[in-house]
Write a protein that binds this DNA or RNA. Structure first.
Length: 567
RNA sequence: GCCUGGGUAACUCAGUCUGGAUAGAGUGCCAGCCUUCUAAGCUGGAAGUCGCAGGUUCGAAUCCUGUCCCGGGCGCCA
């Protein structure tokens, strides 16, 4: 459409007798206000070259237009701007037709573009998931869906951090004070059961610092193959993983491939030694192998300790290579908090130097932290917002609300309240720009009115309710004159494709989240000013509502949110 | 010290990449709207030196330089 505008502009400039060298094709813009048209040309850009004030240029250009082309409703000069209004009746007719035909596939690309692995949420198995993980999961899932929607094959992978001193801390506490209890006997969600011992350790270590050494000793025993320790680690890790699985399911994510640090932490040495041979790495005097990334501004980084053992980055190099080989990946994305930026920067440099993958194929999707009004969440100090507790609390609030207004059976109540609760949570986490830190205020952030997930659910339910009231949707006849709120809704629906594409290109789910909200808002305005059933435009408006439902559903799907037909 | 992200209304955030028309939402506050398709809604109002100072430009929240404040990183931890 923009090409048409440029075409028309070229024609008008020629007819006006202006001799222009300036390339103005990028100057054509989409105004923020619909009342200023669908496209606008700011004439300032020609003003200097022509030596004519911009508003005169706009008038002169408009004068050349004797007859409007079919695809435009109006072209008008407005001060220094020339505003183009596309033919909205045509647009509405085509749009509705296409959406109703393609339904959930509207805007989707079917091509087989790339195989992409997206790694998230990669938790530690010593404590339950918290709000930070939920942000990670919301982002990971949304980006996965966006990638799939744009025609890529996505493999969701998860690297479980199931070894290390932090794991030994909960193990040690269990060994000392656990009395062989089990989550089943105590009726506690298994990952919470494990986490309670991690908390216990951190309480006890305050008065007994030797526990720290004991935990380190335990790690040593574990790595040396001590049977009892291995058994304990297996038992506790499986509890943790069992609990995580439950939370993933509730939150609506399914990981395709699980990796375990305990299984790969010794791997990667060969790659390092080979790199040493190729002189990509070098050996220090005390025998450690390092890479010098001073030129890249990253300094020196140890890859293999002087005692020959590997560290975090060693196994990450191994795993990256394995991923590319096993799945023939075209791209590998890591979703983690921004505190790991240095690590991934170093990792990607190494992978490129070893020719495992160049940087275009690697992406660190780094997001900001979720803070509380008092500051950072600290699991050791117990100031974390627990993922399960938060979901339960939200669901409870919504369930109470639904109970007051509806007569639902228990399972319906459970299902509906969960969908709405997750809409609140996921939208809250995704509407904020991915790289920004965000503040979670337990008292204020839990809100169901205004710029929230439930607002969108409510809009969807109202639209659905209207459609339920009619038996059959008649053929749409586009009315001679469209109402302002109808036009707003049509234009907003028309933005969907562009928004999804931008979200994909920029790997930014918040664009879709914010669009979903604006779309729902536009619908609510339409809903209040345009009666549907019994009106002259009933047929058209029903189709418009059907299109709205579809686009909102598609849009919410991309940020991992389900819809409900009734509220 | 070096690297990196941020600073927009009382609060939580859009808008910045790709400079344009009076800087937008929501919450909270004030005033209206339920005998009509679900009031988790809609309409109106008050509320902003876009951290600060220069510069570029016809035009700067947006680009450049400097500066202040806040977060994160700079382990032979993960």
């Amino acid at each position: 459409m923009k090409e048409r505008v440029i075409e028309i502009l070229n024609d008008l400039i020629k007819k006006a007798g202006f001799k222009v060298k300036t390339d103005f094709s990028n100057a054509v813009e989409i105004p923020k206000e619909y009342s200023n048209g669908d496209f606008a040309f700011p004439c300032f850009i020609l003003s200097k070259e022509l030596g004519i004030p911009p508003h005169h240029i706009a008038i002169r250009l408009r004068e050349q237009m004797k007859e409007l082309p079919n695809d435009f409703e109006e072209i008008q000069s407005a001060g220094p701007y020339l505003n183009f209004f596309v033919n909205r009746k045509n647009l509405a007719a085509n749009l509705i037709l296409e959406i109703e035909k393609e339904k959930e596939n509207y805007g989707k690309l079917e091509k087989n573009e790339k195989t992409v692995m997206i790694e998230f949420p990669s938790p530690n198995t010593n404590k339950p998931l918290h709000l930070g993980h939920l942000r990670n999961m919301a982002i990971g899932e949304s980006v996965s869906r966006i990638y799939e929607f744009m025609g890529n094959k996505v493999i969701r992978s998860n690297l479980n951090n199931d070894r290390g001193t932090h794991i030994c801390k909960s193990m040690l506490a269990y060994k000392k004070w656990g009395k062989n209890e089990t989550p089943e006997k105590k009726k506690i969600k298994p990952d919470h059961f494990v986490g309670d011992f991690y908390v216990k350790f951190n309480q006890k270590v305050k008065t007994n610092p030797e526990l720290e050494l004991e935990a380190q000793g335990m790690l040593k025993a574990w790595e040396e193959g001590d049977k009892e320790t291995i058994e304990l680690s297996k038992k506790m890790n499986s509890w943790a993983l069992e609990g995580f699985e439950e939370t993933y399911k509730k939150f609506g994510i399914k990981l395709d491939k699980e990796y375990f640090e305990s299984k790969i932490y010794k791997e990667g040495k060969d790659i390092i030694l080979e790199g040493l041979k190729k002189k990509v790495f070098k050996k220090t005097e005390d025998g450690a192998i390092i890479i010098d990334l001073t030129k890249e501004g990253l300094g020196e980084k140890v890859l293999l300790r002087s005692d020959g053992t590997s560290i975090y980055i060693t196994q990450d190099i191994y795993l990256a290579k394995k991923k590319f080989e096993d799945f023939k990946l075209d791209e590998s994305i890591y979703v983690t908090g921004n505190e790991q930026e240095y690590h991934f920067n170093v990792l990607f440099n190494i992978l490129e130097k070893l020719k495992i993958a160049n940087k275009e194929k690697l992406k660190h999707l780094s997001y900001g932290m979720v803070n509380l009004p008092e500051g950072r969440m600290k699991s050791r100090e117990g100031t974390v917002v627990d993922a399960d507790d938060l979901i339960d609390e939200l669901q409870k609030l919504i369930r109470e609300d639904l109970k007051k207004r509806t007569k639902l059976k228990k399972f319906e109540l459970d299902e509906r309240s969960l969908i709405i609760a997750l809409s609140a949570l996921k939208y809250l986490l995704l509407k904020v720009d991915i790289r920004k830190n965000m503040v979670f205020n337990p008292n204020e952030s839990i809100s169901f009115e205004g710029d929230t997930g439930p607002y969108m659910e409510y809009s969807f339910a109202r639209a659905s309710s209207i459609l339920r009231k009619v038996e059959k949707i008649p053929e749409a006849t586009i009315p001679e004159k469209l109402e302002e709120k109808e036009i707003d809704l049509i234009l907003k629906l028309n933005e969907f494709r562009d928004i999804v594409y931008s979200a994909y290109r920029e790997v930014n789910p918040s664009l879709i989240a914010n669009y979903s909200y604006k779309l729902a808002q536009t619908f609510n305005e339409f809903y209040h000013s345009c009666p549907v059933i019994g009106s002259d435009s009933e047929g058209f408006r029903l189709h418009l509502i059907e299109s709205f439902r579809q686009i909102l559903k598609n849009s919410l799907y991309l940020i991992g949110i389900d819809t409900v037909e009734e509220m």
